[in-house]
Design a protein around this nucleic acid. Structure first.
Lengths: 140, 140
DNA sequence: TTGCGTGCAAAGGTTTTGCATGGCA
DNA sequence: TGCCATGCAAAACCTTTGCACGCAA
């Protein structure tokens, strides 16, 4: 199981780490490595991402219809336990939130509804502050 | 704009309404109408759903990678305000939750983080009670 | 040497689009 | 009659899979 260390896998991890919490999709990654002259095949990118996801080093989100998944590196899985994602439906901005209210909610759902929420995977959709200001009356 | 009333469009709306908050995907819808001998083409289903979504009668959410979107009729948008979705990452079951804790969280995120959560769109991922019991030690 | 990892191309599944036909107003 | 909606098939899109070759250990 996952015993080999390869150029591609290390390069991919380094790249994701270098983004420091920014998210990318598979196409971006393929493009990046093609651009720097060290191409990595799509299949490999997907396979590595899946592996990293299984290991807990990478989080994958689905952010919309017919759109690519996004991936993001997770440095310290334990620290991100209370960390949720908020994505704006209008501008697409993804922000992180660490907040006791969310931990409370998580605990409540586990205890009262028997459901163990995975914050890493979960994205709360809505409208961010900026877009809310901008579109006060237009409401799309 | 959207001026015509057609058999297909009415049938689709009636069907979605009859589900009373249950969710379906496009394939289910196509299958349903084929089964009752009143088939509706896939393209039409997608086009109608998009139109209804634009009108605000239908909510679409994405529930996983490489999986179909789900659609749900919205009768009274206000009433569903407190209603969230929980999806199990293992068995795929989608359940609805209406709970003050979630409303509290929503309010908190709006007030303290300036982000207006859209519960209709949001899916909380995690592990449901049954799968949690079943996979206590095996973790899949 | 062993066997996992890689890369290409093809397959798989979901959603959109082009175009001719049919139906609403 | 005018124009929108429908339906089929093909295209577009993202992701996975099969297979032969390459490379880490």
């Amino acid at each position: 199981m996952n015993s080999y260390v390869t150029r591609q896998r290390e390069a991919l991890k380094d790249y994701l780490r270098s983004l420091a919490g920014e998210h990318v999709n598979a196409e971006d990654i393929v493009g990046h490595f093609a651009a720097i002259g060290e191409p990595i095949g799509r299949a490999t990118v997907y396979r590595c991402l899946s592996m990293l996801e299984r290991e807990g080093c990478v989080q994958r989100y689905v952010t919309g219809t017919h759109k690519a998944s996004c991936f993001q590196y997770i440095d310290a899985p334990e620290e991100t336990h209370e960390h949720f994602h908020l994505q704006c439906e209008r501008c697409g901005t993804l922000q992180h939130v660490e907040c006791h209210t969310l931990s409370d909610m998580e605990r409540h759902i586990r205890q009262s509804h028997g459901f163990d929420v995975n914050p890493l995977r979960t994205v709360l959709y809505g409208v961010c502050h900026d877009c809310g200001q901008a579109g006060m009356k237009g409401k799309n």
